[in-house]
């Protein structure tokens, strides 16, 4: 699995990371982050259950992050 960004940083002087790479498309990134935050902060599903599902999904998809 790859955990090293394959695209250069969009922020001068900053190393490539998921944040600095996503900054190449900042409006899209902001919209994604907003939706992601809504998933965590809204709704009736307990946050502990959400975290269990997130971790299980990461394991199934072999996500190294």
């Amino acid at each position: 699995m790859s955990t090293t960004p394959r695209v250069r940083s969009a922020v001068d002087g900053k190393a490539p990371s998921i944040r600095t790479v996503m900054a190449h498309s900042s409006a899209v990134r902001l919209a994604f982050d907003t939706m992601y935050a809504t998933l965590w902060s809204n709704g009736t599903v307990d946050v502990d259950v959400k975290e269990l599902v997130r971790l299980r999904n990461a394991r199934v998809t072999d996500c190294g992050l």
Binding site: V28, L30, A31, T34, M35, T38, N42, G43
Partner: peptide, 19 residues
């Protein structure tokens, strides 16, 4: 069923198409 999520999902799609 989840209006806040629906709105933010749509916003993400809008930003993608407007990119």
């Amino acid at each position: 069923l989840h209006p806040a999520l629906a709105a933010n999902h749509q916003r993400l799609l809008d930003e993608i198409w407007d990119s």
